[in-house]
Simulated assay, not measured.
Amino acid sequence: MFKYQAPENCLSNKTILVTGAGSGIGKSAAIHYAKYGATVILLGKTVEKLEQVYDEIIAAGFAEPAIVPLDMKGATAQNYKDMVNTIISQFGQINGALLNASILGELTPFTQIAQQTWDDVMQVNVNAQMQLAQALIPAMVQSDAASLVFTTSGVGNKGRAFWGPYSVSKFATEGMMQLIADEYEGSSLRCNAINPGGTKTKMRASAFPAEDKTVLPEADEIMPLYLYLMSDDSVGENGKRINAQQ
Rank of each mutant, 00 (worst) to 15 (best):
K3W: 15
K3D: 12
P7W: 10
N9M: 13
S12Y: 14
S12C: 09
N13C: 10
L17I: 10
T19M: 05
S23T: 11
G26N: 03
A29Q: 02
A29S: 13
G37T: 15
L42N: 04
T46P: 03
V47T: 07
E51V: 05
V53M: 11
D55A: 15
A63S: 14
E64S: 10
P65D: 03
P69W: 03
M72H: 13
G74N: 14
A77K: 04
A77W: 03
Q78P: 00
V84Q: 04
V84I: 13
T86H: 12
Q90L: 12
F91E: 14
F91C: 09
F91P: 05
Q93S: 14
L98N: 13
N100W: 04
A101K: 00
L104I: 11
L107T: 11
T108N: 02
F110P: 03
Q115P: 05
T117M: 08
D119P: 01
M122V: 06
V124P: 07
V124C: 02
Q134L: 15
P138M: 12
V149A: 09
S153G: 02
G154C: 01
W163M: 14
G164N: 05
Y166M: 08
Q178S: 13
I180D: 08
A181L: 08
I194A: 01
I194T: 01
N195D: 14
T201S: 04
T201Q: 00
K202S: 13
K202A: 15
A207F: 05
A207I: 14
E211V: 06
E211W: 13
V215W: 01
L216E: 14
P217Y: 01
P217D: 08
D220I: 09
Y228T: 10
S231R: 03
S231T: 04
V235D: 10
E237S: 08
N238C: 13
G239I: 07
G239R: 06
K240Y: 12
N243G: 04
